[in-house]
Computed example of a mutant assay.
Amino acid sequence: MSSDGAHGDQVTSGLDRRTELREFLRSRRARLKPEDVGLSSYGRRRVPGLRREELAQLAGVSYAYYARLEQGYGDTMSAEVLDAVARALRLSQEESDHLVRLAQPERQSTAQAAPSPQRLRPTVQHLLDTLGVPAYVVGRRLDILGWNRLATAVFGDWAQLPPEERNVARLFFLSPEARDRFADPDRSALRIAGVLRMNAGKSPGDSHLSSLIQELSQKSEEFRQLWARHEVSCPSTGESVRMRHPLVGEFDLVHEPMTLPGDAPMRLMTYHAEPGSRSEEALRMLASWEMEPLR
């Protein structure tokens, strides 16, 4: 399969860094209004958001200099200029890091030209098995590398799927059954697309990740629209996620992701219920059913 890149709501072949940089800056500029940043609005605007010259003024650089950056040429820009543009665009820390990765990937030690496949260490699987909460591990492509039985009780039996289908994004956007486990799918969809966008910026040469994005863009209109928004996000910490299960109904879990040490980035995703809550009781019921021996 060919790799991906976003231009408007279309996905091109190849994660082209200059195209990604250009579209990312345009999307961030479009979400700001002149009055949001203390500027007077003048003239008819053909497109929403700030004009290039207004953004350049806010960043303290010349129009020509900023225009060159938005054309995808960030290699010669200083760190100070990129920081000034990030402040003018009111980027979050995740978005600022994403801007630097796109403009000057050599400044990011995490960038890899051709990342190798990720595999879970046996000791990490042992850790998963001993945890008393639903937990699983994902790699940079959001592949599900390992999980425990409580995760199976909450999210579904991933062991029944072929290894190539065990992927958080693929399951969410292409499997109605997996998506139905989330009571607020719109919020989850935006978060998953944002994490995938962030990871793609870190590993633009990862052909498997590019193929995944291309597949999702071809098969899911929702993903295609979210991808065109260029949202960037990290897995949320301490966020409540409302789940839905056919046996116990809806219940809330608190999501706590943790980065595992090692050369290849992996995240341990854990979920727990608030003590004494109805959600804790629902989780306890699911756990008891999951742990029952087969007859």
Rank of each mutant, 00 (worst) to 15 (best):
V195L: 09
L150G: 01
A114M: 09
E80N: 11
A193Q: 14
R179Y: 06
A79I: 05
E23N: 13
E53W: 08
R267W: 01
R17C: 02
L161T: 05
E35I: 08
S210E: 15
G205E: 10
P162E: 14
W147Y: 01
L283G: 06
R242W: 14
R197C: 06
L260C: 12
V61P: 01
S40Y: 05
Q57E: 14
Y73V: 03
S2F: 05
P105A: 12
Q108I: 10
W158M: 09
S109A: 15
A86R: 01
R51N: 01
D206I: 00
S96N: 03
T270K: 01
S41L: 11
P163K: 00
N199C: 03
A59K: 06
E165D: 14
R45A: 13
S175L: 09
M285N: 02
L294T: 12
R31C: 02
L55E: 03
P134G: 03
E292L: 14
M266H: 00
Q10E: 14
R295D: 11
A183R: 01
T12F: 11
H272K: 01
A84H: 10
L91C: 09
R90F: 07
L89H: 08
Q125I: 01
E256F: 07
L55Y: 04
E281D: 12
G74D: 12
P185I: 13
Y136Q: 00
S3P: 04
L286S: 01
S233E: 13
P105C: 13
P162V: 11
K219P: 02
S220Y: 10
R45N: 11
T259W: 10
A178C: 09
E239D: 14
L102N: 07
A169C: 06
E215A: 03
A189Q: 07
F182L: 09
E54G: 04
